[in-house]
Write a protein that binds this DNA or RNA. Sequence first.
DNA 1: CGGCGCATTGAAAGCGCTTTGGAAGATCCT
DNA 2: AGGATCTTCCAAAGCGCTTTCAATGCGCCG
Lengths: 341, 341
Amino acid sequence: MNLKELSQNLGLSPTTVSRALNGYPEVSEATRQRVLAAARQHNYRPNTRAKGLATGQAMSIGHVIPISRQDAMVNPVFGDFIAGAAETYARFGYEMILSTVADGDEADVYRSLKARGAVDGIVVHEVRREDTRLELLGEIALPFVVHGRSSEYDGEYSWVDVNNRSAFRRATRFLLDLGHRRIGLVNGDEEMDFAWRRRRGYEAAIMEAGIAVDPALCSSAQMTDAHGYRSARAMLGLPNPPTAFLSASLISALGIHQAVQEAGLTMGRDISIVTHDDALSYLQNGGDVPIYTATRSSVRQAGRQAASLLIERIANPDAPHRQELLEASLVVGRSTGPAPA
Amino acid sequence: MNLKELSQNLGLSPTTVSRALNGYPEVSEATRQRVLAAARQHNYRPNTRAKGLATGQAMSIGHVIPISRQDAMVNPVFGDFIAGAAETYARFGYEMILSTVADGDEADVYRSLKARGAVDGIVVHEVRREDTRLELLGEIALPFVVHGRSSEYDGEYSWVDVNNRSAFRRATRFLLDLGHRRIGLVNGDEEMDFAWRRRRGYEAAIMEAGIAVDPALCSSAQMTDAHGYRSARAMLGLPNPPTAFLSASLISALGIHQAVQEAGLTMGRDISIVTHDDALSYLQNGGDVPIYTATRSSVRQAGRQAASLLIERIANPDAPHRQELLEASLVVGRSTGPAPA
DNA sequence: CGGCGCATTGAAAGCGCTTTGGAAGATCCT
DNA sequence: AGGATCTTCCAAAGCGCTTTCAATGCGCCG
């Protein structure tokens, strides 16, 4: 069933039917009702491509997710972020278009999406401290919103981010207040902006406490359980091992925990762990009393807000850019306690 | 830059340019080269919507992912499956369209995608033992491929699935061969087809060994670490506790491990664990020697194959349906050992 | 040399929608 | 009553592409 058929069915012109369906005022209420009823009855929906062609809007938004070349890793955070964004798109009638790309090849994908008019805008994922993508997107005039920030880029742009620095500063301070003096940082890849900010938060708190930052206590790599395990094991093997760990994700925390136990230590007594928790739906960090003390921020919520921001931006490309900084909460679980004497 | 402009630029008609770009034989090689060069130079790409409208093909494929209503859970497997599918789509020029839907509301989404011509086909995720979606998709004549199978549906359809039954049967047998007689099953939600098949595999092996299946040793729910933890704890508290666990995912295995350790037991010595491992990129189950003994099957590979199958099906809707059954491998890690005497 | 076949190009219609620019009839005002 | 003004509808153009059908020019054969 297409518009023409529907209108013939009703004895009206396509013009009138189109207007009735799209809420234009120059249709009498009576015919509008008649049209709406018929549309419902025949399950008529305007053809996406035809509508897009006529209006010049794709009504869809691209998510280009980088897959690192070496280890073909998909960010675990991705599923929940997407789920949040999808909620918003559904409300506003947008479609989500997903494509993956080996990192480095983003430029082609962006250009192609733009040139083909496949999307109205783009969400930029996994942004690095230095990231050429933002400038590129500016050049090709494709509206975008960034999940995260790019410190080294100084153009104006819209983003949604967690206050990573303050979260890790607070978390570090929390451990310091418990008497810990040697705190291991198991961070994400510090080329990534969020990880870098977390590092700065950690260092700030350490230095404010008058302690020197020990490079042997800082490790950074992609956030897997394996990296957590290896880093923690190495640090626990030091002559002067840490009494606490700060972890960049629940997944690395699992690895750290593993190493802690293998060393015959008990989490929450001999060793404290604070982790960042992205509130992923399938890794729940316990129930009422969380297993891990954690800085928590919902990545799904970030997805929702990024999508809203972008939709707004597309509707109003000349409005000033907007930024949303989400504060993480610090929830206390069973993985932390006073530093052993 | 659109076709018209490009053709004027070249002093040719849009017809010829279109033909040159799409590889039709009735253009001279000289002009074809000229056209291709100009297209590259101006970064011309045909407008997706216009092309789709003209050809009647959307060149895009829908992934409708159900989000359970109660706990808003996104399947952790999802990211890697999608990544695999996206690889294939990229090769064939398809776009991936993602939408989420509260379970139960799938019908609307499918109908809408079909009526609007937004997609050429659909991948069905998280299929249940009884699942009305397959029949529905048949009715509305939307080509689809299922990731998994639906036992209670007896129409013909195309699917890609892991041989869950045989995988779990082998895993159970492996534990039996090690002398274990009481084996706890921490399964996924058994409304889901894959979990049900795993259960049948487990039961088959148990019964083949002449042992009765003990319902107290079988637990089933969504695969979270919390569920793993709770189930294992409960079973370990039984008067006659299991000496081994079979887990439906690495994530539940983490919870089981947790409970095992809290009970003062050592994995691989006092208690054996075998888990299914979907080979997710961010949960690597160790390096050369896996931490967990596991039945392993790459969900990313499944994504690739599902996508291929669907593309083929779209090109050739009347060909007989195809099925692909992936065999899981059983890799031995450090989590299993002979049953304690 | 006229006509045929082949190679190459174009004009124009059509995909399903929106939207501009009327037009017809109803309503209102003087 | 008769023009002005709404109200309500429609014809037709246009979005950027593909594809059918036709046209042109060329070499070649008898």
